[in-house]
């Protein structure tokens, strides 16, 4: 089987190689791809949308519709992971495990306690618990705000430098994931609950689609941000720029929440109690 598939794959590769003969040279500035549609983007972006980062302009405006669905794809993945993995039956074994902070004695409870033991004395731990590592925990808690700020920066500066909603969203999500990794999943959940992630991912995409629908409501075509100019008291070109910005916000929100959602479900096998 392996050999057959190897032969097949090699054969296929050979065919592909043969087809590259008709390609324009790599990096040729006169290749069809470089002279047909893209020149307009390069030349007109600034005057049409006032966004120097052409990729952002094309991504969120010229081909903003694609991007809306790209965000929807992420959202879909989040919902899919939730749907596939989330389950509410408790993990086999003791319901809860606490550790007495002073002595290190570990208490297992078969059933959920009526009253949560005080956090000062007892700390709830996972059943595959390892002691928290002072260095990692502290470094991460110091780094996380910076990472988050950086994520927000990336979202906000998508117009002028590489980045934008998606990258920023991933960075934001990664910061929460980092928290879950360095501390534990419960801590991360305490900051960003399951429902919050679920809602935020939907709301993020909703912002995107909502901006588009708003354009529709203003009597223009879907996602034609120019229509939003009168609402924001700016000229159409800046309306496009602002429209792109709002849309990127939505993307960022959705992506962040979704990444966290997926991580939570993957790492805890859908029980959201303890993770990697």
């Amino acid at each position: 089987m392996k050999l057959i598939s190897l032969a097949l794959v090699v054969l296929l590769g050979g065919l592909f190689m043969a087809a590259t003969a008709d390609f324009p040279d790599w990096g040729d500035p006169a290749s069809p791809a470089s002279v047909h549609v893209s020149p307009r983007y390069i030349e007109k972006t600034m005057e049409e949308t006032s966004v120097p980062n052409i990729v952002t302009a094309v991504l969120a405006d010229y081909r903003g519709y694609d991007t809306m669905f790209e965000t929807a794809v992420v959202f879909t993945a989040g919902v899919a992971c939730f749907l596939l993995l989330r389950r509410r039956d408790p993990r086999p074994g003791p319901e809860r495990i606490y550790r007495h902070q002073a002595t290190g004695v570990i208490v297992e409870m078969r059933h959920k306690p009526a009253k949560e033991p005080a956090g000062e004395v007892f700390a709830r731990i996972d059943d595959d618990w390892v002691p928290h590592d002072l260095i990692i925990m502290n470094v991460c808690r110091l780094l996380i705000p910076f990472i988050q700020l950086f994520g927000l920066y990336v979202i906000a500066h998508g117009h002028h430098s590489p980045g934008g909603g998606f990258q920023g969203g991933v960075i934001l999500g990664a910061s929460i994931i980092l928290l879950a990794l360095s501390w534990d999943l419960r801590t991360a959940m305490g900051r960003l609950s399951e429902a919050a992630t679920g809602l935020m991912s939907a709301v993020g995409v909703f912002i995107y689609a909502g901006v588009g629908a708003m354009c529709l409501a203003m009597g223009s075509n879907f996602l034609d941000y120019e229509a939003l100019g009168p609402l924001m008291f700016v000229d159409p070109v800046h309306a496009r720029s602002l429209g792109i910005f709002f849309v990127e916000l939505g993307v960022g929100l959705a992506v962040m929440a979704t990444m966290v959602l997926i991580y939570k479900n993957l790492a805890s096998e859908g029980r959201l109690d303890q993770g990697l």
């Binding site: 991504l59 990336v154 990258q167 991933v170 999500g173 990664a174 994931i177 990794l181 991580y263 990697l276």
Partner: peptide, 21 residues
């Protein structure tokens, strides 16, 4: 650059972690 940025954030921050999880 944008693709690189995305790959950096996704590859380093997310997809590896997903795999590990």
């Amino acid at each position: 650059v944008d693709v690189a940025f995305t790959e950096a954030s996704v590859g380093a921050g997310v997809s590896t972690v997903f795999f590990l999880a």
